[in-house]
Design a protein around this nucleic acid. Structure first.
Lengths: 108, 108
DNA sequence: ATTTTTCATCGTAATATTGCGATAATTGAT
DNA sequence: ATCAATTATCGCAATATTACGATGAAAAAT
């Protein structure tokens, strides 16, 4: 085993889990925070910013791209990354609705 | 390697990533949704609800407990689980603030 | 005392993630 | 054509996660 049984869950549950997975690493949080701070897009200065190798940073950027939270503009030899507003809003809304669905419990 | 370099990130970044990690599996999303739906606490009926073995469900419950999103009341031989309102609010707020910090970008 | 019920934990196998050095790939500049 | 700069990808090692059967632990009921 070791592989998640995605087939047995709904598309919504899988999507929410997938968005959360993209946020489930401090380096990716730091990358997104940096992209928010420097409104203009960022490329490889993230490597200077973070104590991680270029290869590792590139891998984290790939994971964020995979779920769509960021997008990159090729400006050779650079790649300018920035937050994808559409998916950002989707994530914000989806997670927001999820957390607001809880209205308190009696027991415990 | 294979281990996350937590030391080089802030406590806030690590905590946010850790909360996200707890949500980064559809089974755990399903568990939390079930706990929200059935306001009263739930124990092993999750095993009937989910197409996963008892051992696997227990492991997911442990992960949710680890970050504090749920808590359990021992009522032998049962264990009644429910959402931990304090941590739930923390997660909601932390993630909410994170997503709201983005105010749009120009490029890309 | 034994049985039953419920849940946690152990052990194990399969797969995924993290991290990095080395190597490609791309394109502008010389 | 070669070089420099930047980023992606490959290959590898270490560790983590997912999943499950089997076993253990706890306490009520017989």
């Amino acid at each position: 085993m070791g592989a998640t049984k995605t087939e047995v869950f709904t598309a919504e549950q899988n999507r929410l889990a997938d968005l959360a997975k993209a946020l489930a690493h401090p380096a990716r949080i730091a990358i997104l925070e940096h992209l928010m701070r420097t409104k203009s897009c960022i490329c490889g200065e993230l490597v200077d910013e973070l104590p991680l190798s270029q290869a590792t940073v590139s891998q984290h950027l790939k994971e964020l791209s995979r779920v769509g939270l960021i997008k990159g503009n090729i400006d050779p030899p650079r790649v300018c990354y920035c937050i994808n507003e559409t998916v950002w809003t989707e994530a914000k809304t989806t997670l927001g609705l999820f957390f607001e669905a809880f209205t308190g419990n009696d027991c415990c």
